[in-house]
């Protein structure tokens, strides 16, 4: 250091400042993008949600109308609150189902059996098959949506109906049963949505040393106990990663009804203020959900090395 400094007396910066400057240079693209295409649209859209927007060839004018758009969303619009609650229960049940499913699958995939590589490849395939426009390609056209109810009525669901009836008669709670039935009906969606989560859990499982299980086995632990005492605590940091990933993935689905509503309000009705208000309500609720989940689960995390 001293040798270099004497060579270049003009430069008075010490290594720490220089490193800091190069650090900033490296993340410069992100800072620019964040300020230009994230912060300013965010602030702008927040402002729009509190105003009514007038479009003219010269540009657009915002006139402040305080909480009008929000009040409209919650009290005047007939669909929004219903869609919001529906979407939210869906997010919660879906995420829970994805977590359980992907953990079970990851545990199975962590065992040794023939054709494991093939199964792993197939399980990851949904990451490609269920991305972007591919979701709902068949149901997202005018004709299909108009007859979808017909298909539902005519298709062969008698068997599951009988099972449901038997379970209902045997005195199971109706609310829980409906949720379980719902999840079973959506099993395909859940499988298609858990490609990344399975791999994340699998990575976590593979990093757990086998000697832990051996020791537990010698001490007389059953498999069930060693799952809860070894696997679960060690994998819980990944739980929150997967929760966040699943929630966001679900949230960003372009074919959900609420996102369609937000888009329609913008593109068809040109009601930009109302559209952004709805988007913000939805966004804030999802952030709150993620926050609550991280609070609950970060307490359980043992060795949190960020």
């Amino acid at each position: 250091m001293t040798a270099r400094k004497s060579e270049m007396p003009k430069r008075r910066m010490d290594i720490k400042t220089r490193r800091a400057i190069s650090g900033y240079l490296f993340i410069l693209p992100f800072i620019l993008g964040f300020l230009l295409f994230m912060v300013s649209p965010l602030i702008h859209s927040l402002r729009m949600s509190f105003s009514s927007v007038e479009i003219s060839p010269q540009g657009f004018q915002l006139s402040w109308n305080s909480f009008q758009n929000y009040i409209k969303a919650f009290t005047i619009d007939p669909d929004f609150t219903r869609l919001l609650t529906e979407e939210f229960t869906k997010i919660v049940t879906h995420t829970a189902a994805i977590l359980v499913f992907s953990l079970v699958v990851a545990i199975i995939l962590n065992q040794d059996f023939k054709g494991r590589a093939f199964v792993r490849a197939v399980f990851f395939l949904p990451v490609i098959l269920s991305s972007g426009v591919l979701v709902g390609l068949e149901t997202n056209n005018s004709l299909m949506s108009s007859i979808s109810s017909l298909i539902k009525e005519n298709s062969n669901i008698q068997l599951s109906d009988t099972v449901i009836n038997i379970l209902r008669l045997s005195g199971l709670g109706r609310g829980i049963l409906d949720e379980v039935v719902n999840i079973i009906a959506q099993v395909q969606d859940i499988v298609m949505a858990s490609g990344i989560q399975i791999i994340v859990f699998l990575t976590g499982l593979q990093s757990i040393s086998g000697s832990l299980y051996e020791a537990a086995d010698i001490e007389g632990c059953t498999k069930w106990e060693s799952f809860w005492k070894i696997t679960f605590p060690l994998i819980s940091p990944l739980l929150i990663v997967n929760i966040i990933y699943s929630v966001i993935d679900f949230f960003m689905k372009t074919d959900s009804e609420i996102n369609n509503k937000i888009r329609d309000a913008m593109v068809i009705n040109m009601d930009y203020g109302f559209s952004s208000a709805m988007a913000w309500i939805y966004f804030v609720l999802v952030i709150a959900l993620i926050g609550i989940c991280s609070l609950i689960f970060s307490k359980r995390v043992v060795g949190n090395n960020a």
Binding site: M38, L42, H44, Y272, S276, A279, Y282, F283
Partner: peptide, 17 residues
Amino acid sequence: LVIIVPPQTISTSLFLR
């Protein structure tokens, strides 16, 4: 934040921008 913010939230203002 970039990971969490869905593009839908800012799409309206990006569109106008």
